[in-house]
Every structure is written in structure tokens, then in C-alpha cells.
């Protein structure tokens, strides 16, 4: 089944320029129903209130990191299968392993391009 391009997506990053870039790249791919949060705590609150189809999150944020957000989502029965793609400059293998063990759907290392983002979304959902 082709991915629903109308699904609501939440992008999370403490750098506003990065939010703008990811939004722009998602627009180019065909996704336009996008919300933003600048930290894990705000994102978690938004996820409790709206049925997002995909979360795209940075790791290094305060007060709640993307990793902590991921673990919180996976520990909640209502959101444990919510697709979550980590987009981060954290590129050590320890980070990837930790994210994998926490249940990340995919992991993109910064800097990245639209093609990579599209491929990683397709890896989770199928062809766009």
C-alpha cells in the first residue's frame, strides 16, 4: 500500500533552521501535513494529543533528548508502534546501537539530502 502523503508528521529539533530544512525536504517529497516541536518534552505532549503517522527527531535536545523521547513513545501502549526516524549528528556506533535497541525505525546522520530522507521513509512505509 503506498504511503499516505497526508499523514500528519511531527518533526522535532532544537535548531529552527533545521526544522525549516526538514520541512522543506518533506514538502519536496510530497508531505505537507507537518507540525514542529523544538524539544522532546513538547513533542511528547503533542504526540499524546494527536495521532501522528511519523516522528522525525533530532537526538541532542534539552530538556528531553530525542533518545529519551523515543524510549517514552515505545513504552506507551498507544504509541509503541509509531514510526520514529532519528535524524542526528550523533554518528558513533554506540548511538546507533542504543537507538536500535530502543526501537528506532530508521536512523539518518546529518548532513543528509532529500534523497536519503525519502529512501529512509520508504524503508519504513514502502514506496512513496
Amino acid at each position: 500500500m503506498p504511503v499516505n502523503k497526508m499523514m500528519p508528521i511531527l518533526i522535532v529539533d532544537d535548531y529552527k533552521t533545521m526544522l525549516r530544512i526538514v520541512r522543506g525536504l518533506l514538502n519536496q517529497i510530497g508531505f505537507n501535513n507537518i507540525d514542529e516541536a523544538t524539544d522532546g518534552t513538547t513533542a511528547h505532549s503533542m504526540i499524546q494529543q494527536k495521532p501522528y503517522g511519523l516522528i522525525i527527531s533530532d537526538w541532542n535536545m534539552e530538556p528531553m533528548s530525542g533518545y529519551e523521547l523515543l524510549k517514552k513513545i515505545r513504552s506507551d501502549e498507544k504509541t509503541k508502534t509509531l514510526p520514529f526516524i532519528m535524524v542526528t549528528a550523533e554518528s558513533k556506533t554506540d548511538n546507533v546501537i542504543a537507538a536500535k535497541q530502543a526501537g528506532v525505525s530508521n536512523y539518518i546522520v546529518k548532513p543528509f539530502n532529500a534523497e536519503t530522507l525519502k529512501m529512509k521513509i520508504e524503508a519504513v512505509f514502502g514506496p512513496i
Partner: peptide, 12 residues
């Protein structure tokens, strides 16, 4: 699109 992608320098 290429320019937008390059702007991620600011984050890094």
C-alpha cells in the same frame, strides 16, 4: 533543493 540541503551547515 540543493541550496536548502547545504543550509544544514548551520546546524552542524
Amino acid at each position: 533543493l540543493s541550496i536548502l540541503e547545504a543550509c544544514s551547515f548551520q546546524d552542524i
